Computed example of a mutant assay.
Amino acid sequence: MENQAVSWKKVFIIAGAFCAFWIGSGVATGQEALQYAASNGAFKGIATTTLYSLFLIFMVYILYGVGQREQFDNPYDVFEYYCGKYVGQIYIWFSVVLTYGIYVVMLAGSGAAIHQYYGISANIGTYFVAILALATAVLGIAKLLDIIGVIGPVKILFLSIIGIAALSTLAENPGILVVNSELIQSAGFESVSSNWIWSAVLWALLGLIFGIAFFIINGQTCQSVKEARIASILGVCGVFVVNTLLIISEVVYLDTIRDQQVPTLAIAKVVAPFLAMIFAPILILCIYSAVASLLLVVTRKFAVDKTKKFNLTAIGLTVVGMFAGTLLPFAKLVNIMYPLSGYAAIALMGFIIYKEFINKNAFPYKASGGASVQNNAK
């Protein structure tokens, strides 16, 4: 692997694309960090995001590499590759349905953010982001990665500003972190689990089901396994920094985020009104890039991008999603959809570990051309 070609420009584009995809409405609004980590207090929360990031590095390291090495005709073929024909088909369709559900969750997040800051109807906000994401998805995967690869670092920068403001407040009043860490646990926020280790496991596995096809697509665009894996690790590191700062921010500004659908936007308004003016469109940009990625990933199950069938399918999925995203409050959608994805991924992780580390010849995969493909590690 040492001699494999690495384009650092490509590495940063793919890492940025990972961040843009991963920092969707759940992360950008602060709901994900709140429900998985901050709701258990700052110290347990930071431990949660640390363990979560280590799990995530393990997963993307494998999957980006497999995507580059195997070059699947359809990214969803990775399920048959790891689980065999029959179990793989179950996971394929579960992944498609769940990914589409997450797409709807993120559309709801966009409507909540637009309504909270601009006062515009949440429905109108949802429709606007849905149409913008559709227009991007039909451009194809190559163009999408170029666009969101630039958006990813912008997301990290602006979310980090909120965290830095929280650190400044913390420096002036160090005891607030300890006090609020106790208070936040009984503040009535939605929480995935009171056990921080279990929260970390579910948080990491959340991304395995709905993110696996995107990981494969990203890996396929790299010119070597080494390049793909470096990009994936760098992307996770960016997400780790953002989550750590968000957890500290939400605990420090506990009183500010009470009864708020979008905690990060509420904090930005307190930190500096001018910052909120800048942050609101950035937040919407965060959500839009993730929504466009999810829409493309789901549509790729049914058609190759940049074809008439792809465009018609994407339009149909968008029309259904933009209306479904207005049915339930955003926080409630996150609490329903995200843990479900984590629980479903536990068995899948077992299949991946089995084939990668115990029996590399398990579940021989037949590509569309009929050739049997084995896991010939590089």
Rank of each mutant, 00 (worst) to 15 (best):
K85L: 11
I90L: 15
V334E: 04
I164C: 08
G163I: 08
L340C: 12
L167I: 13
S193R: 03
M277W: 14
G321W: 04
K301W: 02
Y82G: 03
S110C: 12
L205N: 06
N376Q: 14
V60A: 07
V154D: 08
A165R: 01
L134I: 09
S232K: 00
L98C: 14
V334A: 08
E356R: 12
Q261K: 10
I247V: 14
G350P: 04
V241P: 05
G16T: 08
G211F: 03
F323M: 09
V225P: 02
C222M: 11
I162D: 02
W198D: 12
N359M: 03
I230P: 03
L285G: 00
Y91E: 03
I217S: 14
V252C: 06
L327G: 06
V105D: 00
V6F: 07
S121D: 15
V66Q: 01
V241K: 07
V96Q: 02
G370E: 08
E2G: 09
L170Y: 09
R300N: 13
A276Q: 07
G45W: 00
A345S: 11
A344H: 01
S224M: 08
I62P: 02
S224D: 07
I131H: 10
C19M: 15
G65T: 04
I315W: 12
V242M: 03
W203A: 11
Y288C: 08
D146Y: 13
F158N: 06
I212G: 03
A28H: 07
L63A: 05
A37V: 07
I62K: 10
L177F: 08
L51K: 09
S293K: 07
C237Q: 08
G235A: 06
L205I: 08
A122C: 09
L245Y: 05
R69A: 13
D259A: 13
G101P: 03
G119Y: 08
E32C: 03
Y127F: 15
V60K: 04
Q374T: 15
P364E: 10
K308M: 13
I156M: 14
F43H: 09
A42W: 00
I156R: 07
N123L: 15
T256A: 09
T221F: 09
A331Y: 00
L208Q: 04
W198R: 11
A20W: 01
N361I: 02
G321K: 01
A171C: 11
L285M: 15
A108C: 11
L177W: 02
L51E: 08
F79M: 10
K378M: 12
N74D: 15
E2Y: 12
T221W: 00
V225E: 09
L167G: 15
P75A: 10
Q260K: 13
I352M: 10
V291Q: 06
I124C: 09
F72V: 10
A38L: 05
K355N: 05
G321Q: 03
H115A: 15
Y118V: 10
A292R: 02
G119W: 10
N218D: 11
L107V: 13
A344D: 06
M59D: 09
I217E: 11
A280K: 07
F210H: 10
I282M: 12
M349K: 06
A371N: 14
E182I: 11
D255M: 10
V291Y: 00
L159N: 02
F58W: 14
L144N: 01
R300C: 13
Q35E: 11
S341Y: 03
S39C: 09
I148H: 00
V225N: 08
